[in-house]
């Protein structure tokens, strides 16, 4: 079921994350140029399934400087089909290096590429990506 109160959910996630370890399945990837490591926790805590709404808690670690990331964006596309999600991912910034995303839905089986775009203070976008195959 889609969460009715994303902000409240985000706060719950954040508080859980601060105290007992964040819920959800943890994964990470490094941007192609090695600047950032992106770690995300997926809830509900089970592998992503086709047409199943989920949320992400995302933490971005700058591996080279102490700069605060300027912006973060998430998207998911199906390269073979040349389309993306039917939902819009609107990251909600929780703190300087963490975001939550709600109402995500990979609505079709097949190969999806999730992209995590971190923009630094110079406006340079750094991308990490993760391929997910849904059956």
């Amino acid at each position: 079921m889609r969460p009715a109160f994303p902000l409240l959910t985000a706060c719950m996630l954040l508080s859980l994350g601060c105290s007992t370890g964040r819920p959800g399945i943890k994964q990470s990837a490094t941007t192609e140029d090695g600047r950032y490591r992106v770690t995300w926790w997926k809830t509900p805590p089970r592998p992503i399934e086709a047409n199943d709404y989920f949320e992400l808690y995302v933490q971005v670690d700058d591996l080279k400087t102490n700069e605060e990331p300027h912006d973060f964006r998430f998207d998911a596309t199906m390269p073979a089909h040349r389309h993306g999600m039917n939902t819009v991912a609107n990251p909600y910034r929780l703190k300087r290096d963490a975001w939550s995303l709600h109402d995500l839905n990979l609505h079709m089986p097949g190969e999806w590429v999730m992209t995590f775009d971190v923009t630094d203070q110079n406006g340079v976008l750094h991308r990490a990506s993760e391929t997910v195959i849904l059956e």
Binding site: T31, E32, D33, A80, N122, V124, L125, R127, S129
Partner: peptide
């Protein structure tokens, strides 16, 4: 970033290029 197939087995692969950076 390119992940090309080996030279001895070239093949069409639309996913060999992965965006790594984009600067203004």
């Amino acid at each position: 970033t390119l992940s090309p197939p080996p030279p001895e087995k070239p093949r069409f692969d639309p996913s060999i290029a992965t965006l790594s950076r984009s600067a203004p």
